[in-house]
Design a protein around this nucleic acid. Structure first.
Lengths: 214, 214, 214, 214
DNA sequence: AATGAATGAGGTTTCATTCAT
DNA sequence: AATGAATGAAACCTCATTCAT
């Protein structure tokens, strides 16, 4: 099943193999339901080696979260060209995001579903990554507003709200796209972009929707 | 702690007590980490009684999912007045949704986080509820389009995508509102409405954002 | 092997059976080498029941220490008649002590050997019992000195030193008597009494041995 | 931490380093709780080297027992001058004993506590040393009796009992002195000498304590 | 209607020990 | 002379589940 069982690998390589197996197992079974036995077997090593290198189930899970969070962040960053206009950057970033989550569904499950359902060491860990993404998006939205000479200038609070909603919707759509056949990354990105860009424009041109008198 | 320990309750009441305890425990600990011991203790009954009434941990979890899904659906339906215009209906539905998730955070955790991370019997169960909500929202969007004499008519596929994105964003915001202090249900609803309505209007007036040449 | 395997005993009885098995196992194998599996089997129950009733290996060991320390103390106290003269009381106490340690060699091993080699929760626990015994002996020696109208009065510090040496020697002899065939409790007691009483008399008559000029 | 990590030492030296580390670890943690990992690390070598030189944990422990037993015996022997009178020899031997055990508490813990709590290969090993010490003391007591023209001659059996009690008391006091702050080796030796010499004199002058009619 | 007593199965973790270089 | 890589076996502990009343 797992990787070809080749013996006596250098530590760094084995560690990556173990984390690959761990991400797959955690992503599919969840943190609690995943067993170290299964992870070790999938990695093609014995359980004690997993403990020798990665210390404990908790540490292993944390390591996975950090590795995959880094990987996702880098994928998004690598996908955008900072020379382009803001809407093109956002579009590129969303595509990169959905492509990455589609290509690494277990990693996405670890980051989005499992890490958030299992309490404190982990929630913070993904929280950091999410904050970085939100900051990135916030920057893009701000830049877009300036490019459009938005008048009156978009309030910071509105920008933040938009960014939160956008990232939230993206997270949710990623899960949906993964779980639903025949939804391509590009399609998910386009749907969201449509949604998001419209909201942006309306806000920038001071045409917000207002609640009826409560 | 749990309910006052009074003996000899009719079955229906006891069952509800057990499910209350179960929802709380599942919501906070997760499906795997929750133990039948803890649930029984919190419910103020012995473990065999839980098994007598609810059969197994899996059945108990399913029962919780169904009960809470129903409860959420009813809350949303009860919140909207079908006589109002579509945007007012949407606004009311969102508020009802966010109020309910804020008032029942454990139930929301069960539906949104725990049920979706634990494989097949459960994922389908929440899937049904979600489909009903999506259908409901789809209906609203369609109605809104007709009210606006949208021309050309909004494609069904676009409506579906929008509804998905809207529901996804709502789900995401519900978690965010629950986890973040000082975010009221009303605020979450307004943020999302702003976001959503703008996208809707743009689409209905045929001003979609189009991707640059791929 | 173990107790007859009779099912559905009341909790208190089962607990005693488990502790009997535990004392035997801990006494013979040592704290670390004893396995909960072995204890459970010897007690004729399954391992989970041991954990249900006694919580953890550490708690089980502590419980054994406390029970056996109590038992030994009571045996010694029951053995002496406070109406008798001090030397007779000492003699009776020693006999009771050696009889008890001979009849419960595993318990004595737990108290004297195992508990003292395994760090802090346990060392204090036996320390308490030992202190009670030392106090008891100190009282007897003081009484003996007064009965003999010791002149000059025996210094408190000397009494304490004697009591420590006496108890230490008794502890040591108990192990020796248990490990050596053909040494009766009575014989051990007589040897020690001989040894101790002589020291007492010399001290009481102010004939201490003095080191040569260092 | 452990020895400075210098490579390519001759085997004999490395072996001593390992045994130093082993004695320290066994003495503090106990036989079972000590891990070969810890010993190897403390010795500044890799685990396979420990196995290459010392074969197994059991062999390593045995080797420690033998080395430390020898060391203690030699210390005691070196402390006494056979030209002196018997009481001076006893006094010197006790001092040497207590000094050695105080200076090597881990070694003493190995010999007195750990070796005796872990079954057969080890118990015999320390038993040998103990027998040598008892024989040595027996000789001294006999000599003292002869010097004193003890009349009637002290029965061999009494001498043996006394020697056992003396050695037992010494062992016990050694532990007590190590565990109790502010008890010097000299003080422990004096306490015991006082105790012992009095008993000896009484016996030699045929003034034994006799139990009341049993 | 309800429970005290009990367990099979499986989880994480540690450890003495060996292999190949 | 020395070690990095690796493991079989067994330890402690937990949990869903049932039996007998």
């Amino acid at each position: 099943m797992g990787a070809v069982k080749s013996k006596r690998m250098p530590r760094a390589v084995r560690e990556q193999q173990m984390m690959d197996a761990a991400v797959r197992t955690f992503g599919q079974r969840g943190y609690r339901a995943a067993s170290m036995d299964e992870i070790a077997e999938l990695a093609g090593v014995s359980k004690p080696l997993v403990y020798l290198y990665l210390n404990s189930k908790e540490d292993l899970f944390s390591a996975c979260i950090r590795r995959e969070a880094q990987s996702l962040l880098e994928a998004v960053r690598a996908g955008v060209d900072p020379e382009l206009p803001a809407d093109a950057q956002l579009w590129a970033g969303l595509r990169a995001f959905f492509v990455h989550t589609a290509e690494n569904p277990d990693a996405w499950s670890v980051l989005h579903r499992q890490a958030r359902s299992h309490g404190e060491p982990f929630v913070s860990e993904v929280g950091c990554m999410r904050d970085e993404i939100v900051a990135f998006v916030t920057g893009l939205i701000g830049a877009a507003a300036r490019e459009a000479h938005s008048d009156p200038a978009l309030a910071d609070r509105d920008v933040a709200g938009l960014a939160q909603a956008l990232v939230g919707a993206a997270e949710s759509l990623a899960g949906w796209a993964n779980d639903t056949p025949d939804v391509s990354a590009r399609e998910a990105a386009a749907t969201l972009m449509n949604f998001a860009w419209a909201g942006l424009e309306n806000l920038m041109h001071a045409r917000p929707w207002t609640p009826p008198a409560a």
